[in-house]
Design a protein around this nucleic acid. Structure first.
Lengths: 135, 135
DNA sequence: CTATGAGCTAGAGCGCCCTCTAGCTCAAGT
DNA sequence: ACTTGAGCTAGAGGGCGCTCTAGCTCATAG
């Protein structure tokens, strides 16, 4: 199948601007074909790659790392251990990030419960006004 | 207890530059005291608030949201439901972010396993060279 | 008493990641 | 024939969150 840039944008959630930008920046594993009038024509494989890029960006992989990964793919077989190292590094970063977010989430959830309780107790609590609980 | 700016930086993981910057930006719930020669003197409560800010930033709460929260605290009691709304909003954003990261993580982990298997199979696989598996 | 080091302010600079603009070409519909 | 809409390029612009600099004041150690 063949897709226009705006179709790819819709499918991947990236903007057409971002798609052109990523291409300029060397983030794509394969060159995007053009039709007779110079417009980009994306293949299914291209769309799959772009989706992968979108997932990597969602997980905050820096453009630089995606570029390096794309370069390894472009070089062809033989550098699998380098690709693996790159992926593992990102895997670890994601795990760390999830841990940080989970910890922040439990803190926030605690505060949410405190405020809910406070509000449920209504005006009575307002009169009392409470001690200085810094937050 | 009283702390210098560099002590607070060490304790919270923020830089001294960031601490001054956050203060200028109105992210602090209370004014930081100064000593006779104009230097900042942080109280335990201040340090606690700064730590909270650091946690919120780790979970990518925008400075603007932290500022709004700080303003609500500064206004004093009476706006608890607004504070609650703000916290709930961030709570939801964190949950979404964790979901996105988890999904990205399982994708990456899958790829990592594929490459590990590929490499474990050694040179034999190299010869075969494989089909075009876009990644 | 001077030299070192920490702190101060205001403001400039920067890295990242897009996003937007200007000015153009086409293809297709009316 | 003309208008509309999508696409194109190169490059400027912008938001966010710090980070760094210049030029200064102090307190303390040697």
């Amino acid at each position: 199948m063949a897709y226009t840039i705006s179709e790819v944008a819709t499918r991947t959630g990236l903007s057409v601007h971002a798609l052109r930008f990523y291409e300029r920046e060397g983030l794509f594993a394969a060159e995007i074909n053009r039709n007779a009038s110079g417009r980009r024509v994306y293949s299914d494989d291209d769309v799959e790659w772009v989706s992968l890029c979108a997932r990597l960006r969602e997980s905050d992989m820096p453009l630089e790392a995606i570029r390096r990964y794309a370069e390894l793919i472009r070089e062809g077989p033989g550098n699998e251990s380098t690709r693996l190292a790159l992926l593992r590094e990102h895997e670890e970063r994601i795990a760390d990030q999830i841990a940080a977010l989970s910890s922040a989430l439990s803190m926030i959830s605690y505060k949410v419960r405190v405020y809910e309780k406070h509000l449920a107790e209504g005006k009575a609590a307002q009169l009392w006004s409470g001690p200085a609980s810094a937050d």
